[in-house]
C-alpha cells in the first residue's frame, strides 16, 4: 500500500486513494490532525466525477513518489490526484499554497452577495467557513456584482443563483440519482448558471438531495424558508419505515415542531445516505418518526460550537493589531 506524507504526517492508504481522501483518513485517525484536511467546495465523495472545479482543495506536491521524486510544477486538486508511494504533500505548511488558496477564496467571493443575514444556509455554509479561514477581511472588488433573479424550481426548492459557486454537485445528483435530468448548467464563463432554462419543476423522488449537497445557499428548502436560523433548532436523529429510501434522517426541531428534515451529515459535511422527498418534505410530524435522540452534530460551521470564538481568539492573540476593528470581544459574537 502506498505511503504518503501530508504536512509531515505519514499514512498508508489503499491503492488509488486521492490525496484528499488520505488527508481525511489522517483527520479521522486523530482529530488533532484534522487541520491537514484541505477544504472542499465541489468534491463530494458520494458523487462520481465530482471535484476539481473549485480549486480550494489544491495542495503542493513537493515529491511525486519514491520512484519519481520530482515535485509537481503546479498546485494540484487534492480531490482528483491519486497518491503515489512516497509522495510528499504540503498543505498548511506551505505559505505559497495558502496564498494561492486565499486567491481562490477571493475569486469565489467577488460575485457572492454576502447576504448571510437573510440566507437560510448561514450557520452551515461551507463558503462562510472558507471565507473565515482563508478570506481577506476586506473586499478588493470594486465593481457591481453579478445578479440573477431567484427562481423556484418546483414547490420545494428555491434557487438563488447569486449565491452559487458552480460546484456542479446538484447536477451530478440529478444525473446519478434520478432519471430524466431537467436542470443543468447553461451559458458559459462568469454568466454560467444553474438552470432549467425553461420554466420547469425539478420533480422526482430524490430532488431534495440537491439541497443537502449544495455547499452554499443557492439551493434551499422552501418548506424551511425563513422558519428559523439553523442554530436555534435542535437536530435529532430519527428514522421511519420508508418504501423509497432508508428513512434515516435528521429532524431539525423547535419544541415539538419539525422545521426541517435533512440527510445525516458526517464530519466532512457530506450526507451518509441520500433520502427521498417524502421523508424530507411530507413527514414534518414528529409522530411519523422514531426519534433516536439528539444528533451529535459536528458543527463545522464558523458560527457553531465555539469554532468561531476559538479561531478568533487565536487570531487576536497572534496578531498585536487585528486587521479589522469591529469584531468586538469574542463572547459577544452571535451564536454563542
Amino acid at each position: 500500500m502506498p505511503k504518503v506524507t501530508i504536512d509531515t504526517i505519514e499514512i498508508e492508504v489503499p491503492e488509488g486513494t486521492t490525496i484528499l481522501q488520505a488527508a481525511r483518513m489522517i483527520g479521522e485517525r486523530d482529530a488533532a490532525h484534522r487541520h491537514v484536511v484541505p477544504p472542499t467546495m465541489c468534491y463530494y465523495s458520494k458523487l462520481k466525477t465530482s471535484g476539481g472545479y473549485c480549486r480550494t482543495c489544491i495542495v503542493k506536491v513537493t515529491k511525486g513518489s519514491d520512484k519519481d521524486p520530482r515535485p509537481m510544477p503546479k498546485p494540484v486538486a487534492s480531490c482528483r490526484t491519486a497518491v503515489m508511494d512516497g509522495m510528499v504533500v504540503e498543505n498548511t505548511t506551505n505559505p505559497e499554497l495558502l496564498d494561492a488558496r486565499k486567491g481562490v477564496t477571493e475569486f469565489l467571493l467577488i460575485n457572492h452577495p454576502l447576504d448571510c443575514p437573510i440566507c437560510d444556509q448561514a450557520g452551515e455554509c461551507h463558503l462562510q467557513d472558507l471565507g473565515y479561514e482563508h478570506g481577506l477581511s476586506k473586499s478588493r472588488y470594486a465593481f457591481e456584482r453579478r445578479t440573477f433573479e431567484p427562481i423556484d424550481i418546483g414547490d420545494t426548492i428555491k434557487l438563488h443563483m447569486n449565491r452559487c459557486i458552480l460546484c456542479y454537485r446538484c447536477v451530478k445528483v440529478a444525473e446519478q440519482l434520478t432519471d430524466g435530468r431537467v436542470h443543468g448548467v447553461i451559458n458559459r464563463g462568469d454568466v454560467a448558471e444553474i438552470s432549467t432554462y425553461i420554466q420547469e419543476a425539478v420533480d422526482n423522488d430524490f430532488s431534495g438531495n440537491m439541497i443537502d449537497v449544495c455547499p452554499v445557499g443557492a439551493l434551499t428548502d422552501r418548506t424551511f424558508r425563513f422558519a428559523s436560523r439553523v442554530w436555534y433548532t435542535k437536530p435529532m436523529d430519527a428514522h421511519r419505515k420508508c418504501p423509497t429510501c432508508s428513512g434515516r434522517a435528521v429532524l431539525w426541531m423547535k419544541g415539538n415542531e419539525v422545521l426541517r428534515v435533512t440527510g445525516r451529515k458526517d464530519q466532512w459535511g457530506e450526507v451518509e445516505e441520500f433520502i427521498c422527498n417524502a421523508c424530507r418534505f411530507d413527514h414534518k410530524d414528529v409522530k411519523h418518526w422514531t426519534v433516536e435522540g439528539p444528533r451529535q452534530v459536528d458543527r463545522h460551521s464558523v458560527i457553531g460550537a465555539n469554532h468561531y470564538e476559538l479561531q478568533l481568539k487565536q487570531k487576536l492573540l497572534t496578531k498585536a493589531a487585528p486587521d479589522s476593528t469591529p469584531v468586538g470581544r469574542p463572547q459577544e459574537l452571535p451564536g454563542a
Binding site: G52, Y53, C54, R55, T56, G103, V104, F107, L108, I110, N111, I165, L166, V185, N187, R188, G189, D190, V191, A192
Partner: peptide, 11 residues
C-alpha cells in the same frame, strides 16, 4: 472565452 468551470479563471 472562459468556460466557467473553475473559479480562478471564471471570476
Amino acid at each position: 472565452e472562459s468556460c466557467g468551470q473553475c473559479s480562478p479563471c471564471r471570476e
